[in-house]
Amino acid sequence: MVPPTPFPNAEALVVRGLTVRYDGRTALEGAEARVPVGTLTAIVGPNGAGKSTFLKGLLGLEPAEGEVRAFGQAVATALPRIAYVPQRAAVDWGFPVRVIDVVLMGAWRRMGLLGRLSPALRDEAREALDRVGMADLAARQIGALSGGQQQRVFIARALMQRAELYLLDEPFAGVDAATEAAIIAVLKGLRDKGATIIAVHHDLSTVGAYFDRVLLLNHRTIAEGPVATTFTREALAQTYGAGQLVAVPA
């Protein structure tokens, strides 16, 4: 499966020497990544390995050192082409906003300050909700949803951004099986249309079924590449520490 990629920017994301420090503690030390366009990559590593920090650092949401290019551009320039879904959005769940309004916030770049909220945009937002199986809850208050449903709304908001690179932090954490199936189907659909998806993932048993590529991380990049060649027992032992491994990949 070779995605249709324009030559000069065959890489959706290149990370070189990404280092993030909090209060003198080093969370990431020179992490590397090279993610081809049109792939679905899992970031895997033990708790506290700096997986979330990796995403925040490369986006510039945490002060970081190192070089990050997205589609050959600096991240700040490429930001309109990137959608980010944090693990659990730090929002006020009592906020007076309906599900459909949250999804429409993803269309801000197309709407702008004075642009009209056209019926076409509303239809697109409903369709995005439909893709994550939430169409019938469009008029609900965001605070009235379950955690998994909220997660799906934020993925629908990301879809609304029509991004080319999607960064998701633990999209399956705390969601039910139906949500998980719905989300992975959406992500695979995006990939098949040429988008690039990178997701922090904690369930080693589903890496092979869900993802094409894997990035093993423990404060630094341990290994990166296609699941078949990179997601090996040796690499995992190196990532998690020998003897720590419970689930053994097939």
Binding site: Y84, A89, F95, M105, W108, R109, L113, Q161
Partner: peptide, 22 residues
């Protein structure tokens, strides 16, 4: 009235607003 959308976005989810260029 002019600023209602970005004001609401920043109040609801400042991080996402930032990602959206606000």
């Amino acid at each position: 009235w002019v600023l209602r959308r970005p004001l609401a976005m920043v109040a609801f989810d400042p991080l996402h607003a930032r990602m959206m260029g606000i």
